[in-house]
């Protein structure tokens, strides 16, 4: 294995300009910054309609120091495929120099990926288009004001899964759909999860993904200050706790082999992750226990995939 990277290895270039309108403490902003550091300036970014889109490119302002395009909500993967196709054919025809390396990276939210954009994403992955698709997952439709998405975790309050006499937040009584598994089911060469609280891990994964030809997917947890009801200075702490409790597992899949990139020998109870966030404030002990059971099951599944215990038991 190569030497692990440190912050000193990260490029100093800031391709995400300051002055964008993302919230203080926005997990997505941290993610974008490190994605761009890894991808570099020879990158075309495609964004569907999402928080990051509307806050970074309000005409005539633009926070992206790379070519950037937004078209609609459900088609970032498709637009990225068109860009890649255009680049490839224009290289063949001598319009773009043949040796020019250009990364095509689509970055979309969970609504634009899990829900409305899943069909287009499936097309891109299925065709094998040379595109890196990154989902920054803040676990609800935050852009429109915190509505439930196909990625909202069990029990979470949102404005469309409110806590009332009958409803108790997100009602789905099981693990949400597994985006990485969906990508892998399309026979992609590389898929991973990442988390801006672990920026070096995120950086390394984007680098690795872009070194591989074909469709790649990275699913990034994106703590959301207003949507998760957390303090602006807690988004990194919450992101870390997500990993330390096993709510989120940083792993990657490369050509049939799974690897956990942030092993957790002893897990903290999920309560520690949940209690920092207002969206889980209403949960009863019984409900927290159910979430703990879901996490335990997922940890067991991942450990089985790896073939050894990389995520340990909850510390007593």
């Amino acid at each position: 294995m190569s030497k692990p990277i440190t912050v000193w290895d990260l490029p100093r270039d800031e391709l995400l300009a300051p002055g964008h309108r993302m919230c203080q403490g926005c997990g997505a902003a941290i993610a974008f910054r490190h994605i761009l550091k890894a991808a570099g300036k020879d990158t075309i970014v495609v964004m569907p309609t999402c928080c990051g889109e509307i806050t970074s490119t309000v005409y005539p302002d633009n926070a992206w120091r790379v070519p950037w395009i937004h078209v609609a909500f459900e088609n970032a993967a498709a637009v990225a495929s068109g860009i890649r196709a255009g680049i490839e054919v224009l290289k063949r025809k001598g319009v773009i120099p043949k040796d020019r390396q250009i990364n095509v990276v689509a970055i979309g939210g969970d609504g634009g990926t899990f829900d409305i954009g899943l069909q287009a994403l499936s097309g891109t992955l299925e065709r094998g288009d040379d595109v890196l698709y990154i989902c920054y997952d803040n676990e609800a439709y935050m852009n429109t004001g915190i509505q439930r998405s196909g990625s909202t975790p069990m029990g979470a309050w949102t404005t469309t899964t409110p806590v009332g006499k009958i409803w108790r937040g997100e009602w789905r009584p099981k693990k949400r759909k597994d985006l990485v598994a969906i990508a892998i089911a399309h026979n992609v060469p590389y898929a991973a999860t990442a988390n801006p609280a672990f920026p070096l891990d995120l950086y390394a994964k984007v680098k690795k993904a872009l070194s591989i030809r074909g469709p790649k997917l990275i699913h990034v947890l994106s703590p959301c200050v207003p949507g998760w009801r957390i303090e602006p200075d807690k988004s990194v702490a919450v992101g870390k706790l997500a990993v330390l409790t096993g709510m989120w597992i940083n792993y990657e899949y490369e050509n049939g082999v799974y690897r956990v990139t942030t092993p957790v020998p002893k897990r903290k109870p999920v309560r520690e992750y949940l209690r920092l966030q207002g969206r889980f404030r209403h949960l009863s002990e019984e409900e927290i226990k159910k979430i703990q059971q879901l996490v335990d099951a997922e940890v067991e599944r991942i450990n089985k995939l790896i073939g050894k215990e990389v995520i340990g038991p909850v510390e007593g």
Binding site: I69, A78, V79, S81, G82, I83, I87, Q119, A120
Partner: peptide
């Protein structure tokens, strides 16, 4: 480049992406 797409929505999205790179 002939892209076999999964819908007309994607067909036009691909065309937009392709036109966007010239």
């Amino acid at each position: 480049e002939f892209l076999h797409v999964e819908s007309e929505h994607t067909a036009l999205s691909v065309a937009i992406g392709a036109a966007a790179v010239g």
